[in-house]
C-alpha cells in the first residue's frame, strides 16, 4: 500500500496538495490544515464525504469545488452513512471485478464538525461504527456550531459563552460538561480511536496513516480552534492549539481495539488552564472574581482526566 514518507517535514512537503485554495473558510481556520494533512499523508485514492458544516459550505461554493478527489455532501448527519454505503458498493464491485482498476487502493473518509458528530449525526455514526465498515471518521472539533453563528453543542466545554448559552449577570456560559466522544467511540470496540491536534503535525499524520491502514471503522477527534467563535486573532491558530495540548485541555492519545490506551504526547511543563482560557474571548468572563470557581472546576476536571489516562495507559487493559 502506498503511503507517503513522513520522516521529516521536508520529506512531507514534497506531496502534491489535493485540497485547493480559494475555499471560503475563515482566514486562519484549522479545518483546512487538518484536511490538507489527511490528504497529504496518503497516495491512495480517497473517497470523502462531509457532513454539513463549515467545511462543507466553504469548500463547495457553487460553481467551485476545492476537492481534487471524489467528494460528496448530503445531509447534516449522513457523512458516515454515505461513505459506508460507498465502501460497501466498492467491496461488492471489487469482488465482481467490475471496477475500472480493481487493484487501485481506495480509502474512505468522512469529515464532520463537532455538531454533526457529537449531536446530530451521532446515531448514524454509532451505527456505522457498529456495522464495522472499513472507513475513517474525522471529527473537526471546534466546540460549537460555528457555521450557523456559534450555538452551543455538546462539545462546548463548561464555562464557554456561546450565542445560545451566553455569559451575563445570571450565567457563566454553558453549565454542562463536554461529552467524551473518544471514550464513547472506543466503547464501540473500534480498532483505532484517537484524539489528535494539528500543532503536533507528525503524530497527527501518523495517526491518520494508522487509521487509513487499519481495516475497520476508525475514529479521530481533532481539535480545530475557531478564530471567529473562540474569539482570537487568526494568526494565533497554532498558538491556541499549542496551549490546548500543553495545558492538557486536549490530551493527545490513541485507543487501540477499545482498550489499549497510548498517550502520544506528554508536555514537559504542563501549563495552567488559565493560559489557555485567557487567550480566548469566549472565556473572558471567567476571570471575574465571582466566576473563579468555574476555572477551578475546569482545572480539577483536567487533572482528573489526565490521571485517568495515565493510569489506563499503565494498566494496559
Amino acid at each position: 500500500m502506498a503511503i507517503t514518507s513522513i520522516k521529516n517535514l521536508k520529506e512531507f512537503s514534497t506531496n502534491n496538495d489535493r485540497f485547493e485554495g480559494a475555499h471560503t473558510l475563515c482566514p486562519g481556520c484549522a479545518h483546512s490544515m487538518i484536511v490538507r494533512e489527511l490528504m497529504n499523508c496518503t497516495d491512495d485514492n480517497l473517497v470523502i464525504s462531509a457532513n454539513t458544516g463549515c467545511l462543507e459550505v466553504s469548500t463547495a461554493v457553487y460553481p467551485f469545488t476545492s476537492w481534487d478527489t471524489s467528494w460528496i455532501h448530503i445531509g447534516f448527519e449522513n457523512a458516515a452513512t454515505a461513505v459506508t454505503g460507498a465502501e460497501a458498493m466498492h467491496k461488492v464491485r471489487k469482488r465482481k471485478g467490475t471496477l475500472p482498476d480493481n487493484d487501485a487502493p481506495v480509502k474512505f473518509v468522512a469529515f464532520g464538525g463537532d455538531g454533526s458528530t457529537y449531536d446530530i449525526g451521532f446515531q448514524w455514526l454509532s451505527g456505522a461504527m457498529e456495522r464495522g465498515h472499513d472507513f475513517t471518521y474525522i471529527c473537526l472539533d471546534n466546540e460549537n456550531y460555528a457555521n450557523t453563528g456559534g450555538q452551543r453543542s455538546s462539545a462546548t466545554p463548561i464555562g464557554a459563552t456561546t450565542s445560545t448559552a451566553q455569559a451575563g449577570s445570571h450565567s457563566y456560559g454553558k453549565k454542562e460538561k463536554k461529552k467524551d466522544i473518544v471514550a464513547i467511540m472506543a466503547a464501540h470496540g473500534a480498532p483505532y480511536v484517537a484524539q489528535l491536534a494539528p500543532n503536533k503535525w507528525k503524530s497527527m499524520a501518523k495517526g491518520f496513516q494508522k487509521a487509513l491502514e487499519i481495516e475497520g471503522p476508525c475514529f479521530i477527534n481533532t481539535v480545530s480552534p475557531c478564530t471567529t467563535e473562540w474569539r482570537f486573532d487568526p494568526k494565533d491558530t497554532i498558538l491556541l492549539t499549542d496551549l490546548a495540548t500543553e495545558s492538557l485541555m486536549f490530551p493527545i492519545y490513541e485507543i487501540l481495539d477499545g482498550h489499549e490506551l497510548n498517550i502520544l504526547y506528554r508536555p514537559k511543563n504542563v501549563l495552567p488552564v488559565e493560559d489557555y482560557l485567557g487567550a480566548q474571548g469566549r472565556y473572558k468572563h471567567l476571570f471575574k472574581p465571582e466566576n473563579k470557581h468555574v476555572i477551578e472546576q475546569i482545572q480539577g476536571d483536567i487533572d482528573k482526566n489526565w490521571e485517568m489516562l495515565q493510569r489506563r495507559e499503565e494498566a494496559r487493559i
Binding site: 517535514l9 521536508k10 520529506e11 512531507f12 512537503s13 514534497t14 496538495d17 485540497f19 485547493e20 485554495g21 480559494a22 475555499h23 473558510l25 482566514p27 486562519g28 481556520c29 484549522a30 479545518h31 483546512s32 490544515m33 490538507r36 494533512e37 494539528p198 503535525w201 486573532d233 487568526p234 494568526k235 491558530t237 497554532i238
Partner: peptide, 27 residues
C-alpha cells in the same frame, strides 16, 4: 504544513514563494 489555504509553494523540499491568489493574509 500549517498554511490553511494551500498558498505556500514548495517544490523539491524548497520553499519558493506565496500564492497570492489563494492567500487570505491570516498570518
Amino acid at each position: 504544513v500549517w498554511c490553511p489555504d494551500s498558498s505556500i509553494i514548495s517544490r523539491d523540499k524548497q520553499m519558493l514563494g506565496i500564492d497570492y491568489d489563494h492567500c487570505k493574509g491570516c498570518g
